[in-house]
Design a protein around this nucleic acid. Sequence first.
DNA 1: TGCCGATCTGGCACTCAGTGCCATTTTGGC
DNA 2: GCCAAAATGGCACTGAGTGCCAGATCGGCA
Lengths: 196, 196
Amino acid sequence: MIGIMGLRERTRQAVKADIAATAMRLFLEQGFDATTMEQIAAEADVSRRSLFRYFESKEDIALGDIAERGVRVQEVLAGRPDSEGPWEALRAALDVLATEMEFTPEWAARITAMFHETPSLRARQVEKQLRWTGQLVPEVERRLGVPPGSAGDPRAAAIVTSALACLNAAVDAWTTGGGKQSVFELYDEAVAAIRA
Amino acid sequence: MIGIMGLRERTRQAVKADIAATAMRLFLEQGFDATTMEQIAAEADVSRRSLFRYFESKEDIALGDIAERGVRVQEVLAGRPDSEGPWEALRAALDVLATEMEFTPEWAARITAMFHETPSLRARQVEKQLRWTGQLVPEVERRLGVPPGSAGDPRAAAIVTSALACLNAAVDAWTTGGGKQSVFELYDEAVAAIRA
DNA sequence: TGCCGATCTGGCACTCAGTGCCATTTTGGC
DNA sequence: GCCAAAATGGCACTGAGTGCCAGATCGGCA
């Protein structure tokens, strides 16, 4: 047993990363829909069956660890001082997405473009963000002073989803526009626009 | 030729509505995923093949005319006086969604519940809303004074998606909470919350 | 009314994602 | 070096979605 995970788990992660890299190359070369699981399996030297043991779906290969990042955001959000308002705390929490993610502009642009022209991918991505929302809402409700368990108050959900909407708009603007401003300058611009 | 569409087109719409009704009944009885296209075809007295001539996908049957409503919203938005700000105009435009839609609370609640517990449905719904966004953004950009064709400004997209986010939050709150307040009271609450 | 062409329909075969099952191989750890 | 757990590969299956074609249907016009 070396480190926090055994040797087995480590090789597993390595294989997973290798598959993801191979798949992403194919996706960018041929397009997402035009690439079959069988082809990915062949190029990554695993059976089609094993592919589904590493990734639940084809979209998951492209989406990467988006889902896991959600819990990181939630952790950071929960750790923010109570003195901060929802928007302040959310901005700080969403910051980990940008800082922990290596943004090679050129590469990111191609990925984003692929997402844009592939409805099924876009759909799954949004679906994962919806799961984030569910995790972040309780914390925002606490800050808003909403008694826990009281259904029917739209405010917290509205704030969280709007923040995510601003982030998405910022990333979009960052990729379509030449990338002169940073994602977070654009995020702040977006937030300012909706709150003005 | 009777009315604006020929007899053929009219029967086609009737069949389509019949299929949708049958399918929705099955969806609510057994769940979305547990209902197969083959079963829907059998109960609606059409072949499986014809089913795909009426609806592009299984989700489309449940989603109904969400996509078409988008253009209505866009029309109303474009028709609003220039004196109105983006939020004012958007609120008026989104109003058609609530007023043109018959909200039988009990029935709507069951539909919404099904959407909530069926990720693929939720994803597609959001995807259609994303298409709305694309249609509404140019109009909001005009009101914002953004020169057309200039990419890289996140503000209009942020406003539109946030407005949609507020609407979604409102509908959610309306279904989970007892429905004491109207959807639009909740919408206004949500907007007030993010802009406070 | 009867015919013609456009349209609708059903059936078949196919691709591809995703899953259950089982037999075989690999491998970590005592 | 042995053993149980885990990983793998192969096979068969379901279910959504699509292309193709032959035949039924039907609106509209002479």
